[in-house]
Design a protein around this nucleic acid. Structure first.
Length: 468
RNA sequence: ACCUAGGUAGCUCAGUCGGUAGAGCGUGUGACUGUUAAUCACUAGGUCGGCGGUUCGAGCCCGUCCCGGGGAGCCA
C-alpha cells in the first residue's frame, strides 16, 4: 500500500522520485498514440493531479500487438517501468514501460459515453457516474477536496470547533425554506388522531421530523459555550427551485461566533473567503489553468485580484438609492422595504462594483426572526455577500441575543412553543453573537467559473432528479 | 397548474417551400510521425424523443406525452 501511495502520478511527476527508478502507475487511459518508430504512447490519469503521465510502450512487449494496440480511452491499466526524463514536449516525466497489464477493457469503444472529445455539461449530467473521468470533473473534484480541507484548516488554526449538527431535525421553524419530511409511517395506512389528523406520535421520533435546512440554531447553542464553532455538512431544501444555483441537497459551511457583532461577521466572511482563494491558488494551479483555458478566462486573474482587494461594504439603504438611479433598466421595482431581486444583486456586484459586495442592515420585515434588531427599530443586522456571476454566496447576521426582543419577533413570526431551548440560550448567560452560511457548491462555481451548480457536486439532487 | 428556446449518427449540430438523411468530432481500418485534444485517407454508424393526426407524401404542419436546458420566484 505504501508503494501505491508513493507512486500516484502526482508523486511521480512531483520531483520526489528520482529518474531511473523503477515505478508502477495504476490508472485509466486518456489516449493512445502510435508511432512508427516502434513505440506507442499512453496518456494515463489516476485523479491525483490534472496532467496525465505518459507511458512509452515499446513494440517488443509480449502483449503489444494483441493488447496495447487495442487500448482505447477509458481502459484501466497497470504500467511498470523506469521513470525517465521525457524526450518529448509537454511533460517533464514519462515512464519507459517494461510491462503493461490491462486490468479492464472498454467494451464497445465507439459507444463509450465519455469519448476523447469535448462534451457538453448537459450531456455529462446524464452520465454522472462516468463524468468524473473527464478533465473538467476531475478538476472540480480536486478543487472540492482542496477547499474542504482549507475550510477545516482555516477554522482549526483559529480555534474554532467543528460541531456536527443534526441532519434530522424536529424543528419546523428553522425558517430557511421548505423541508423534506423524515418518516417511517406507512403512507398507505397513516395513523389518525381523534380529530382525523395524521398522528405523528406514532412516527419514529414521536413527532414530525425533517431533514435540516440549516445547522445554525444548533450551532448557536455550541457557540454560546465554546465561543467559536462552525458546521460543515449537507443541507436539504425541498424548494421547487429549477435554476443554475439551487440544489435540493447541498453542502453548507456555517461559522458562529460568540461576542461578535455584524462587523466582526463581515470581516470573518471576507477573511475566510480570501483564505480559501489563496489555498486554491497555492495548491491547484494545474486545475485553475484548465478552467482558465476552457471554461472562464477570468478565473485565475480574478482569484489573484480578490485576495488583495477589499470587499465593498454597503448598507441596504445605500444599495436601494443606487438602484433607484437606474430604475428604468430593471424589470422589478426597487423601493426601501422590498427585497432585492436577482437582477438587482447582479447589477450591484457585476456592474456597479465589479467584485464582491457585502450588503448589510436589511429591513426587518424581509429577514428571519432570529436576526438582531438594530437601534433604528426597522432594520436588522443581516448581511449578504454577493459575488458576480453567482449572486448570494453567503448569508448571515448578528443574532438577536435579547430575550424580550426575540420573544416579540417569535410571536410576530407566528412560531409556536418549539423555541424553548432556543430561548434558554438567551435566558442563561446570553451574549451578542453572529454567524453566516456559505453555500459550498456556489463557492465552487465562483472559483472555477462553472455556470451550473449541478456540475459543482458529484451527484446533484434537484426537483424530479435523484438519479445515480 | 410560471416564462422561453430545444430533442436529427456514440457526441455537437446543419437540414431551404412538405418531396429518397448531412457535416464535424469520436469509433474502426490504413498511411505517416518521439507522439501528445496529432495529422491525412477511407469505412461503418439513423424507428429524425414516443404516440396519434393532417397530407398522394411529414425531420419539417397540428395534438398529446416524455426528456434535458435557459430564465423568474425561493435562497446558500
Amino acid at each position: 500500500m505504501n508503494d501505491t501511495i508513493r507512486h500516484d502520478i502526482k508523486t511521480l511527476t512531483g520531483g520526489s522520485v528520482a529518474f531511473g527508478e523503477f515505478v508502477e502507475v495504476r490508472g485509466w487511459v486518456r489516449s493512445r498514440r502510435d508511432s512508427k518508430a516502434g513505440i506507442s504512447f499512453l496518456s494515463i490519469y489516476d485523479g491525483s493531479c490534472f496532467d496525465p503521465i505518459q507511458a512509452v510502450i515499446p513494440n517488443n512487449l509480449a502483449n503489444y500487438q494483441d493488447e496495447v494496440l487495442r487500448l482505447t480511452t477509458g481502459c484501466s491499466v497497470i504500467v511498470e517501468g523506469k521513470l525517465v526524463e521525457s524526450q518529448g514536449k509537454g511533460q517533464t516525466h514519462e515512464i519507459n514501460a517494461q510491462r503493461v497489464l490491462v486490468v479492464g477493457w472498454v467494451e464497445d469503444a465507439d459507444h463509450y459515453p465519455v469519448a476523447k472529445k469535448r462534451h457538453t455539461f448537459e450531456y455529462l449530467r446524464q452520465v454522472a457516474h462516468l463524468r468524473p473521468r473527464t478533465n473538467a470533473f476531475g478538476a472540480i473534484s480536486r478543487i472540492r477536496t482542496t477547499v474542504c480541507n482549507a475550510i477545516h484548516r482555516y477554522f482549526h488554526e483559529r480555534h474554532f470547533h467543528w460541531v456536527n449538527t443534526p441532519i434530522i431535525t424536529a424543528s419546523d421553524c428553522e425558517g430557511a425554506g421548505e423541508l423534506f419530511r423524515v418518516s417511517t409511517l406507512d403512507l398507505m395506512n397513516l395513523p389518525k388522531d381523534p380529530a382525523g389528523r395524521i398522528d405523528f406520535q406514532e412516527d419514529f421520533f414521536g413527532r414530525e421530523a425533517f431533514l435540516t435546512v440549516s445547522g445554525q440554531l444548533n450551532a448557536e447553542a455550541y457557540a454560546l459555550a465554546l465561543s467559536k464553532v462552525y458546521t460543515f455538512g449537507p443541507t436539504f431544501r425541498a424548494e421547487n427551485s429549477n435554476t443554475s444555483r439551487h440544489l435540493a441537497e447541498f453542502w453548507m459551511v456555517e461559522p458562529e461566533v460568540a461576542f461578535a457583532d455584524l462587523q466582526d461577521n463581515a470581516w470573518l466572511a471576507e477573511d475566510f473567503l480570501k483564505y480559501l482563494f489563496t489555498c486554491i491558488l497555492d495548491e491547484r494551479q494545474d486545475d485553475l489553468a484548465f478552467f482558465t483555458q476552457y471554461i472562464d478566462a477570468q478565473v485565475t486573474g480574478r482569484l489573484e485580484s480578490l485576495v488583495t482587494s477589499e470587499f465593498e461594504l454597503m448598507e441596504y439603504g445605500e444599495a436601494v438609492r443606487i438602484l433607484e438611479g437606474y430604475h428604468k433598466s430593471f424589470e422589478f421595482p426597487v423601493r426601501w422595504g422590498l427585497d432585492l431581486q436577482s437582477e438587482h444583486e447582479n447589477f450591484l456586484s457585476e456592474t456597479h462594483v465589479g467584485r464582491p459586495v457585502v450588503l448589510i442592515n436589511y429591513p426587518a420585515e424581509i429577514k428571519a426572526f432570529y436576526m438582531r434588531l438594530n437601534d433604528d427599530g426597522r432594520t436588522v443586522a443581516a448581511m449578504d455577500v454577493l459575488v458576480p456571476g453567482i449572486g448570494e454566496i453567503i448569508g448571515g447576521s448578528q443574532r438577536e441575543e435579547r430575550l424580550d426582543v426575540l420573544d416579540s419577533k417569535i410571536a410576530r413570526a407566528g412560531l409556536a412553543g418549539d423555541m424553548e431551548w432556543y430561548r434558554d440560550l438567551r435566558r442563561f448567560g446570553t451574549v451578542p453573537h453572529a454567524g453566516f452560511g456559505m453555500g459550498f457548491e456556489r463557492f465552487i462555481n465562483y472559483v472555477t467559473g462553472m455556470e451550473n451548480i449541478r456540475d459543482a457536486i458529484p451527484f446533484p439532487r434537484t426537483p424530479k432528479h435523484a438519479l445515480f
